[in-house]
């Protein structure tokens, strides 16, 4: 088969999938970019007039009376909350995920499949069900508060639900498998004889972890962090259910613009920002992981 017909067949066979994806996934993203520079319609939608208002409103607001421009504090606090919670989620899932992945990878081959299966079940379980499950645990009359009151640690239920803490707990809970799986893949490929070499050369347990294991499984760490950070930043269901409307993240803020806010250009501009942040993370990820392979 010649190189040209190979490529032709490849494109031909892939084209139905590509067409559907361009129609119902990738293509509409361009429309979002276009909408972000149009003027907002009276109720919803847009007017086909070029306008920078959508982008302007991402960071700034204009006073309705005296037209003075100031930073949009409400927006900034939403961005800050999103970034803060996403970073915290990534760090906490890593703290739990690394030992968990290590634990699975060091099980005997027979039981390893079972432990891996136990991690994949929550991974494939409906996000909404998992969020709902954690909600039942942390609500005022939920088992956590009931348990803490019973032990006498607290005298009355602590309000966790509808706080940032609730959103954080929820995101850690739903995204933990996303951290464990790539870490497991990296540790599974890891040559355990290198640990023996480390101990043979006088390293302590902590030195082996820091000096040998972590640098070598770095691609897995980066992959896990990206896989957790990206959906956390764009989270919608978890903050909506556990944050209770007030503790919005970017995802909810975007939805608001297409719903009650009726400011489609702002929503489109916010979506574009989110998309750009994600793309930049992915580029950084590719750079970091390709640098790890000196042969490539």
């Amino acid at each position: 088969m010649s190189g040209r017909s190979k490529g032709l067949n490849g494109w031909l066979l892939s084209s139905p999938a590509l067409i559907l994806l361009l129609l119902a996934a990738s293509g509409p993203l361009l429309i979002v970019a276009v909408y972000s520079v149009l003027e907002k319609g009276d109720y919803s939608g847009v007017r086909w007039i070029l306008s920078g208002d959508g982008w302007f409103n991402v960071l700034f607001q204009r006073d309705i009376f005296d037209q003075t421009v100031s930073l949009a504090d409400a927006n900034l606090s939403i961005f800050w909350r999103s970034v803060k919670l996403s970073i915290a989620t990534t760090l906490i899932t890593f703290a739990f995920g690394l030992p968990t992945a290590w634990f699975i990878a060091t099980r005997p081959p027979k039981s390893r499949a079972l432990w891996l299966f136990l991690i994949t079940i929550p991974f494939w379980t409906n996000l909404l069900i998992r969020t709902f499950a954690i909600m039942e645990v942390i609500r005022n009359q939920g088992i956590l508060n009931t348990f803490l009151t019973w032990t006498g640690l607290i005298s009355e239920p602590i309000q966790i639900l509808y706080t940032d803490t609730a959103v954080l707990i929820g995101m850690v809970y739903v995204y933990l498998p996303l951290m464990v799986l790539p870490l497991y893949a990296a540790i599974d490929r890891f040559d355990f004889r290198l640990i023996e070499a480390g101990y043979d050369l006088y390293a302590s347990r902590w030195q082996v972890l820091r000096g040998v294991i972590l640098p070598i499984i770095r691609p897995g760490i980066v992959a896990g962090s990206i896989l957790v950070f990206i959906p956390s930043l764009g989270a919608y269901v978890t903050p909506r259910v556990l944050g209770g409307g007030k503790n919005m993240m970017i995802g909810n803020f975007i939805e608001l613009q297409f719903g009650q806010g009726q400011n489609w250009p702002l929503g489109a501009a916010l979506s574009t920002v989110l998309l750009l942040v994600v793309l930049i993370s992915l580029v950084v990820y590719t750079r970091v992981t390709s640098k790890d392979d000196p042969r490539g």
């Binding site: 490529g7 490849g10 494109w11 892939s14 999938a17 590509l18 994806l21 361009l22 119902a24 996934a25 990738s26 509409p28 993203l29 429309i31 979002v32 909408y35 990206i230 959906p231 930043l233 764009g234 919608y236 970017i250 995802g251 975007i254 939805e255 297409f258 489609w264 929503g267 489109a268 979506s271 989110l274 998309l275 994600v278 793309l279 992915l282």
Partner: peptide, 26 residues
């Protein structure tokens, strides 16, 4: 163009769902 095909096919895994949702809504 193989890489282009890969990127398009895997795009739903990379783009935050809320962005795709908004795009499809529009």
């Amino acid at each position: 163009g193989q890489t282009v095909i890969y990127i398009i096919i895997n795009q739903p895994l990379m783009v935050p769902e809320i962005v795709t949702a908004v795009a499809l809504l529009i």
